[in-house]
Design a protein around this nucleic acid. Sequence first.
DNA 1: ATTAGCACTCAAATCAATCGAGTGCTAACA
DNA 2: TGTTAGCACTCGATTGATTTGAGTGCTAAT
Lengths: 347, 347
Amino acid sequence: MSLNDRKIKILQAIINDYIATAEPVGSRTIAKKYSLGISSATIRNEMSDLEEMGFIIQPHASSGRIPSDLGYRLYVDCLMQKKELDKEEQLFLQNIVSKNISQIDYLMEETAKAISALTNYTTIITEPIPIGTKLKQIRLLPLDQDSILLVIATDGNYSKNHMLKVNYPPSEDRIFEIGKRINRILQGHSWENITENIISLLRNELQEFSFLLEPLLLAVEQTIRSAENVQFHLSGAKNILAFPEFSDVQKAKSIFQALEEKDLLVNLLSERSGSDLQILIGNENSVQSMKDCSVITATYKLGNNAQGTIGILGPTRMDYSQVISVLNEMVQNIETVLKNIDQKNDS
Amino acid sequence: MSLNDRKIKILQAIINDYIATAEPVGSRTIAKKYSLGISSATIRNEMSDLEEMGFIIQPHASSGRIPSDLGYRLYVDCLMQKKELDKEEQLFLQNIVSKNISQIDYLMEETAKAISALTNYTTIITEPIPIGTKLKQIRLLPLDQDSILLVIATDGNYSKNHMLKVNYPPSEDRIFEIGKRINRILQGHSWENITENIISLLRNELQEFSFLLEPLLLAVEQTIRSAENVQFHLSGAKNILAFPEFSDVQKAKSIFQALEEKDLLVNLLSERSGSDLQILIGNENSVQSMKDCSVITATYKLGNNAQGTIGILGPTRMDYSQVISVLNEMVQNIETVLKNIDQKNDS
DNA sequence: ATTAGCACTCAAATCAATCGAGTGCTAACA
DNA sequence: TGTTAGCACTCGATTGATTTGAGTGCTAAT
């Protein structure tokens, strides 16, 4: 018994139909809707073979067939035809990137929103930055009579501001000056690097403004920690409720549950096989409560060894070809922009 | 027929029981669980009266009673006893605030998370800032050979950074210098205020770095827009799925739908009657799909005329007294910290 | 005024009957 | 030998009848 051409056509018909309707597909349906030139009886015979080979499943004895994980796997690996995004969709995605170049966390947040809006699936993006992040610039800017804005920028195009309140503020020039000194001392250091030694250096430099020391260190720690943290963006979780396979609240809830566990999702996105585009179908992913879901992940590279992952999560009968084109398009957009930045940095 | 003491005791029992179980409450249940010293028959008579007065409803002829919106209203206005948070909960909430003073958007995000974690309801926070936001400080910081960090701070303790990429960067000193000039020109202006006139001033000052002009203006616009935008934080939406009243996926979905419409929620939170704490029960709120929900909102004042709102959304049978204590505690925490800041600013 | 007692109501659970989409198998056919 | 018409069969889903039980309202006795 071999996977001849006809069997493949039938399998493809089943998968297409099931992706569209979420209902088990019967032989008569295929005979009528897809003009394969053979009768439903013949199709039945072939389907029986396909089931024996493990590509399709009969949920119960007198129902139609649905694709198995293996069936989807074959589909994804061999049968699926690439879909081109139309101009409108391409522009939509390109716009998201080009409008948010200057702030990477906004970019990722908007990317997640855009993808889930376009696909109606759930989007998860991780934005990892290598550990050992170093301080690049620290500045103090006078704002009010008694507020100072502390700006901390680190490796990896990351920056964060902190508002410091002071009762007896130094003059503007002094503030700049103090900022410069702090910068001179801390620049280039990672958090682990900031020893008692450096702290006492700071204390010396700050002199009469020693009350700034504590909030300063706190802010530095927070900034580095949050730069080193896997930044994480999730969007479109509610889309899950739209799929009939999750019309059981219990199922929906267990997925929402999983979606709130950041560590679990980070793991899910990093289950990878070196390939840029990875497709995990049903039980292939390790999260038990998501065995009816597929996750398609793509990595985008920020140059060096920093890379992030975009994952799209939907029911196993998701529209793989659409998702893949969206991912490809988006990764390409992001990489074009970020490589651009990186090349410049390397020069 | 008057609302005598006994009727009130019975109503209270019904509401307490229904809040706990989400099941219609019968006369026998009350007779057994709450030792009111009267028989179920008497309770039945009283319940009949309470129904006639509109405080309770019989979902169908032979079922127990559930509180009506009016019943909850009476409960909330008169019957409910205040609940004190325990030390642990207080500390938990205080910590959230004290750990996030320096960045207001983080503070609100974390506040929303904390409240929904503590109450198991859904939390919505708006953080409105009066329009006509003015630029307070603009600075350029050299970062790399070819990246410049543009820092823009506005009224209302708001600031945002933007990464600028340049091919032929000026020297560090020049960068500072240009930043200062830009600052001198733009400081104190609102977006509407930036006329052609000012732009040409800028163009003059920038001279050979005129290529900075466009990204600069774009960043200024973005920052002001996002400062003036009602910042918005939503957390714990998935909690909705845990309540039996929303075990119908359709209902859950329609609520999730509403929760994604920012404008609608902003309206919901601003439906107010001047009072600091507002409770909208069931149909009292204007959103049709949320007629089975109650929303409790509290305003926190940032001094002057800037104020934000924290809203907690749950089923009408939510634990009003818990939610109110959490809100009071949190508003107090936030105001203490922010008033502190504001007093200093006014000095 | 309260309560025991009882008839009554109605949603929910249970069960049987029916329906129909779909299958597998067989025999006939090209 | 591969294909197909035909038919018996399967089983989930739907429908309807029946039972159950929590709860009520009313009445008459206390």
